[in-house]
Computed example of a mutant assay.
Amino acid sequence: MSELHRATRADARRNHEQLLAAANQVFTEHGADASLGQIAKRAGVGIGTLYRHFPTRDSLLVATLQGSLLALVDYARALLDAKSPGEALKVWLKAYIKHATTYRGLAVCLPPLTNSASICELVKNAGTALLERAQAAGEARADIDFDDVAVMSAGVAFATQEVKEAARRKRVLALFLDSLDLR
């Protein structure tokens, strides 16, 4: 491999990392619908470089959240051995909803992401396994699937992300979990 080729690859890796760091900062400050141009500028690259690395906003969001998404998958897998499947699902859904508020406005993006990005597909499969286990044990409603739960979770996350009172956020979350008949 030529020295020029190695330098280009190192530069591309550096740009990729700078874009992820800048995206995390800008999404944290301005929400999931933040300007991609602002992200590129903060990373010190042009918008074309951003799009070469991340062709869509969704791909950038998923890449920025990859570690936390994988942690959700691992958490779900660990909970599959819990004594109470309904309680395991409840605990995981609280983590899932908390994750949906990582960036303001992220909750709106989550349902479509779970159907498009491979890492989000892992999250969906992990949530589905917990839900189906709770349903099989008679500890959750039998007439729902994880797509229903994901959409409702996104709604709860969206509705509570700006609520200042912790008691109100907890109440809305409890009402949601009660709607699943978790025992």
Rank of each mutant, 00 (worst) to 15 (best):
T49S: 15
S153R: 09
A137R: 05
L173R: 05
R183D: 08
S153C: 15
P85E: 07
M152V: 13
W92A: 10
R14S: 13
L175F: 06
A136F: 03
Q135W: 00
K98Y: 08
R133I: 07
V73M: 09
Q25S: 07
L19S: 04
V149Y: 01
A43F: 13
S59W: 03
T101H: 07
H99D: 13
I47M: 12
A82E: 11
D181M: 13
E3M: 13
R6W: 11
E165V: 13
G46Y: 08
A7L: 14
P85F: 06
R169M: 14
A157I: 11
E87Q: 10
S84A: 15
H99S: 14
I144H: 02
A107G: 15
E132K: 00
H53A: 10
A136R: 06
N15Y: 12
D74F: 08
R9V: 15
C109W: 13
S153M: 15
G46V: 14
Q38C: 04
L79E: 03
L177T: 06
K164P: 02
A107P: 03
I47G: 06
H53R: 05
A117L: 01
V156N: 05
M1V: 12
V73H: 04
L106M: 13
A167I: 11
V172F: 04
G44L: 12
E29M: 11
N125W: 05
D33C: 03
L131D: 03
G127D: 02
I119Q: 10
R133E: 06
P112H: 05
A166R: 12
A134T: 01
S84V: 14
T128S: 07
V45Y: 09
P85N: 07
A117G: 00
V108W: 02
R13I: 09
L20F: 07
Q25C: 04
G44Y: 06
R183P: 04
A95K: 11
E29A: 15
Y51L: 13
